[in-house]
Structure formats: structure tokens, C-alpha cells
């Protein structure tokens, strides 16, 4: 994995000209973790999507540098791993196929042994040949972790990290989190006190106006 540095400055996002949030700035270096807190609909997921360059901000910039060189927005995905409720897997494929197909689309080629290792890490090795449609929501969540972790991203974005997970799953997330914070960056969007306290820093986002924004259609909280 590569050492990355993330700078967000003056981020603002409007939906239909109504501000969701405004003026969010932060800077993260390797080893730093950040929690994003806020009520439902305050735009936590939106912020995460902007950081991942899946959405463009109305104003402000997100800069990701790798070894001092700025990464163009369209190539940022190479350094990002993301787990989120609105991120869905290909349900008609098996766990193993999801890993290998996405791996190829990313232009990488991990070995079968590496896939096995990832699946073992998220305790799905025994179901690797089952199609994802038959998985429970917790198992799907685990597979998303395997996908996010595959490239050992410099920046890990977790939206509601413990959604649908059992105690085992939560401890797996914790160990991933600790592993990532050794030399990478983690941003967690959460409603849970427990998740927030793990992080070095917390930013609280709220709509700039009275009466919070309704979330845009199809958004997670």
C-alpha cells in the first residue's frame, strides 16, 4: 500500500440549490482517523461520496496526494477502499467471482491464494462458491470488506461500518481498522458513539440552515 495524504477544503454540497452542508475542511495524514457524525440526513454519506470522488462538491476541493504527487480525481478510486450500505455487490455471482471480476476491472490480478486469504479474513471461505443472492445481509457486508481491503487502499472509507454485523464481524472490523490506522487513513461515518471514540478526531456535520435537509432520494443516512 501507498502512503496517502488527504486534504478537504471548504466543501459544500447543495441539492437543488439547498445546502446539505457547507464549509467542511480537514486534513489527514497516514495513521490518522476521522469520524463523521451528524443526525440522519445531515449528509454524512454525501460527504463520504465526495471524498471518494463519486460525487462532485458544489464548492471546495478534495485533494489526495500519494508520495507528494496529487492524484487526479478520476484516478482516486485506485487508493480508496469503501464499505457502505448503498454500495451493492453483484448478486448473481459467487463471493469468489465478485472478488475476481472486480479485481480484473480494477486492472489488477491477485492470485487465487490471495482471494482465499481475503475470504478467510472475513470468514466467508466456506461459502466462497455460493452466489451472493443467497447470502445474509451480514455476509454481504463481510464480502464488501474483502473487496475494499483487496487493494490495501491508502484511504479506507466506512459508512455505518457495523451495519448487519454480529459480534465476530464487529471485532473483525475493529482489527481491520487498527491495521489500517498503522500507516493509512480511515474515515468513518457513523451514528454510533462506539465507532466515533475509536477515531482520533470527530467532525460533526449539520445543515447550515434551521430544519435539516431531507436526504436526497436513495441516500443512506
Amino acid at each position: 500500500m501507498t502512503l496517502v495524504q488527504l486534504t478537504a477544503s471548504g466543501l459544500r454540497k447543495d441539492f437543488n440549490r439547498r445546502p446539505v452542508f457547507s464549509d467542511i475542511s480537514f486534513q489527514l495524514r497516514p495513521g490518522q482517523t476521522l469520524a463523521v457524525a451528524g443526525r440522519n440526513g445531515s449528509g454524512k454519506s454525501t460527504l463520504l461520496k465526495i471524498v471518494a470522488s463519486l460525487l462532485s462538491p458544489t464548492a471546495g476541493t478534495v485533494t489526495l496526494t500519494v508520495g507528494g504527487n496529487e492524484v487526479p480525481a478520476r484516478w482516486m478510486f485506485r487508493h480508496i477502499g469503501m464499505v457502505a450500505p448503498y454500495l451493492h455487490l453483484y448478486e448473481e455471482f459467487t463471493a469468489l467471482e465478485n472478488l475476481s471480476l472486480i479485481d480484473r476491472i480494477r486492472g489488477a490480478a491477485h492470485t487465487a491464494a490471495e482471494y482465499e486469504k481475503l475470504l478467510a479474513m472475513v470468514s466467508l471461505e466456506r461459502r466462497k462458491h455460493d452466489v451472493v443472492r443467497t447470502f445474509s445481509s451480514g455476509m454481504k457486508q463481510r464480502l464488501k470488506y474483502a473487496l475494499a481491503w483487496m487493494e490495501r487502499p491508502g484511504l479506507l472509507l466506512l459508512d455505518e461500518p457495523r451495519t448487519n454485523l454480529d459480534a465476530d464481524g464487529i471485532s473483525m472490523v475493529r482489527s481491520l481498522f487498527e491495521e489500517q490506522r498503522r500507516d493509512g487513513i480511515v474515515i468513518v461515518a457513523t451514528n454510533e458513539e462506539d465507532d466515533a471514540v475509536m477515531c482520533d478526531d470527530t467532525i460533526e456535520i449539520s445543515a447550515p440552515r434551521r430544519g435539516g435537509m431531507p436526504p436526497p432520494a436513495g441516500e443512506g443516512s
Binding site: A52, F77, Y86, L87, H88, I102, I105, R106
Partner: peptide, 16 residues
């Protein structure tokens, strides 16, 4: 519809 487009967006650029 299935929300897999985000997975693609996190995996590659537009042209391919």
C-alpha cells in the same frame, strides 16, 4: 437499479 454502479465507479474510469 441494483446499486452496483458505485462498485464500478470505485473500480475503474469511465471509458473502459
Amino acid at each position: 437499479d441494483r446499486g452496483t454502479i458505485l462498485l464500478l465507479k470505485l473500480s475503474t474510469i469511465s471509458t473502459p
